[in-house]
Structures are given as C-alpha cells and as structure tokens.
C-alpha cells in the first residue's frame, strides 16, 4: 500500500489522525495533514483505508497495487 495526500484539499479536521494516528499527524501551524509513513505495515492497512474513506475532503488516496 502506498499513500498520497493532497495538502491543497485537506480541510485540517484531523479525522485521519483520530483513525490512524500511527500514520497521520497534523502540522502545528495550520493543521494540514502530515504523512508519517507513506508505505505502512500490513497491520495498519485497515485503519488507513478507513482514514481515507472518512476524510471529509477526500485528500487521501491509496494505491494498493502489488
């Protein structure tokens, strides 16, 4: 799994941090998403998929090929 985030779309709500705190954080100054781990280990995949789906600004895209 490979994660990409679109900072320009991010609404800074922090839903991703609530859902997958090992993979996402927010910048202190403006709350925009910080990707801690673009290729997380398998045990985190379910949480990352949920984070991508619940993101209210569709700022997280997953590539699951391979």
């Amino acid at each position: 799994m490979k994660i990409t985030v679109d900072e320009d779309r991010c609404c800074a709500g922090g839903s991703c941090v609530l859902t997958a705190p090992d993979v996402f954080d927010q910048r202190d100054e403006d709350g925009v998403v910080l990707l801690l781990d673009p290729e997380p280990a398998g045990h985190l995949h379910d949480a990352v998929r949920e984070a991508a789906e619940v993101c209210p600004s569709a700022a997280i895209t997953l590539s699951e090929a391979g």
């Binding site: 800074a12 709500g13 922090g14 941090v17 609530l18 927010q26 910048r27 709350g31």
Partner: peptide, 14 residues
C-alpha cells in the same frame, strides 16, 4: 472551536 488552530482543536476534542 478552533479558529486557525485546527490541530489544537482536534486535540481538545480528543
């Protein structure tokens, strides 16, 4: 409520 403080607002929510 956060006004230009999104991360801090989310932390307060938690």
């Amino acid at each position: 409520l956060g006004w230009n403080m999104p991360k801090q607002a989310r932390q307060l929510r938690q």
